[in-house]
Amino acid sequence: MTVPELDSEQVAVYQRPDALSDTNTHYCPGCTHGVAHRLIAEVVDEMGLRERMIGVASVGCSVFAYNYFDFDFVQSPHGRAPAMATGIKRVLPDRIVLTYQGDGDLASIGMAEVVHAAARGENITCIFINNTNYGMTGGQMAPTTLPGQKTTSSPNGRDVEVNGYPIRTAELLSKLDGASYVVRRSLHDPKNIRLAKKAIRTAFEVQKRGLGFSMVELLSICPTNWGMTPRQAIQWLEEKMIPFYALGDYKVNPSVADIKI
């Protein structure tokens, strides 16, 4: 350390949240899965929910999410996390049940499960990581891949004539009466990360109050599969993803609007 220690009295103003386990993650350097994990853990700590939390990990890069949190977890088949969460929540209604899903998992193979969980007003929270590709299998085209975006299964760029158009999941789910809180946030800079944390907090408050389905879509970077440095990836998210996936609140029930954080 080239910087001298401070001689004044100091306090820790930020520490690793208790709800994260001490395990090293398998995520690539810069991957914002880690940021999303950290935010969830911070909210769990702040709300004192550790003993009531049950997480449902999905299939994709976040398949090992259960290793990284210090609360109960199960691991779901690909796309079925909202169904598993439904099963858990219906027998244990006072627990806070969270699914953590990527875009291939939630918006492709698991679209039926999430749509119907939302339609039922299932009192669960889905954290939805949108990084425009299938990360775990090596960067294939996902339902969220942008038009023209090159992936390992759209090597010439996503051709909407052949591959169809990306799905804007938050907008889609917001049309369902059972959905109480559906928002899109981004993890590309400090301000947006703080807003994302607030949204996760709100979603958990929604669930705690029994107000129905909540989903927080988080725009994320995938530097490795995008073939970029984390720095470039952050820039790409800001320049390409946000214009297509507008940040904002897509569904906030009046009763949710009363929640003050």
Binding site: L6, S8, E9, Q10, V11, A12, V13, Y14, Q15, R16, P17, L20, N24, T25, Y27, G30, C31, T32, H33, G34, V35, H37, R38, A41, D189, P190, I193, R194
Partner: peptide, 19 residues
Amino acid sequence: CGICATMCPEAAITVYREV
């Protein structure tokens, strides 16, 4: 200020501030 910790995907940073 804690901005580094806000960005850190690994929750690897502890931030101290003088009282």
